[in-house]
């Protein structure tokens, strides 16, 4: 799942328009100035990249147990969904 982790970090960095080297598992999405619409675009980009469906609802703090606080949270959620939904980690 190393590929998933680096790919997710790359997608996050691209959405946040920041240097991928500055984004780690511990980075909080809020600190990247990702506002509500950026988060939705980020999820769309991840769904497209990994061919998965992410059950995210902007009205809830967590949807289906998925919490998007840190980049690590996103990596774990995507890795789990790729396995469950047989997405493509490429």
């Amino acid at each position: 799942m190393a590929d998933v982790a680096s790919d997710v970090l790359e997608v996050i960095a691209k959405q946040a328009k920041t240097d991928p080297a500055k984004v780690t598992r511990e980075t909080e999405l809020a600190d990247l100035n990702l506002e509500s619409l950026d988060t939705i675009e980020l999820i769309f980009a991840l769904e497209e990249k990994f061919n998965i469906e992410i059950p995210y609802n902007a009205n809830e703090a967590t949807t289906a147990g998925i919490n998007f606080t840190t980049a690590g949270d996103v990596i774990d959620a995507v890795a789990k969904l790729v396995t469950e939904q047989k997405g493509s980690a490429a």
Binding site: I40, N57, A58, N59, E60
Partner: peptide
């Protein structure tokens, strides 16, 4: 795609509303 749609029903102003 906007992620604002409720899957259950519309419960305005109520706790547990999902969109």
């Amino acid at each position: 795609a906007l992620r604002v749609m409720a899957p259950d029903t519309c419960r305005p102003f109520s706790l547990g509303r999902k969109g």
